[in-house]
Amino acid sequence: MRDFMHISPRIEATGLRIGRNGASLLNVAHLVLDGPGPTLILGPNGAGKSLLLRCLHGLIVPDEGRITMEGVPLSTTHRARQAMVFQKPVLLRRSVMANLTYVLRRQGLGWRARRLRAVQLLEEGGLAAKARQSAQSLSGGEAQRLAILRALAIEPEILFLDEPTSALDPSATQAIEGLILAAARRGTRIVMVTHDIGQARRLGADIVLMNGGQVAEQARVGTFFTDPQSAAARRYLAGALVI
């Protein structure tokens, strides 16, 4: 149905543990993100989804455990090849265009090349008409689109997304899903947290279900939705409140 290039880097996490005040917040024995297409991380609130995403991106250092990219321990060099989009878009208090040229300048692009690339990205995201506007004046959906375009501007090998559409209406969600799928087709590994089972079906190639800080199940999308192996996954898909 969807053809994804299988060139995205392999991420492997082993023995990840994060605890606070005696409570275990994250306890992931082994997780490999290697298959083609987007990985969607599902699970209830407090399941450790966002924490896992931040660990994989290197924003949080786990108390214990090891994360590797292509077999090499995660470092700041890796982060330069990754990008993350947050639930609430964090846009610079500058114009829409300047939000893109800011990261492009860090990529070492000259003034003209930055502008050209920014315009190209804005056209791709349907924001070209708003290039000169203040980023603060964008609607929620537009702001999140800009945040994704800015993340894609660095042509990341891995794009982490933390519930990017949780506050958006269906048409804004559709626009964002379009951008994510396009990036996935170009070979960017997508690792995305969502609450929305429908979204996981639409976008996911690989599903990871988190529960209580642990990976309850990891499976290809077809298997996960038709033949879930874990009790947590069966209850989650049946619409039960998994706490």
Binding site: L59, Q82, M84, V90, R106
Partner: peptide
């Protein structure tokens, strides 16, 4: 407080 995580994500 608003920017920190995003800027760190950008490697700053």
């Amino acid at each position: 407080a608003e920017y920190a995580e995003q800027l760190r994500s950008l490697g700053i």
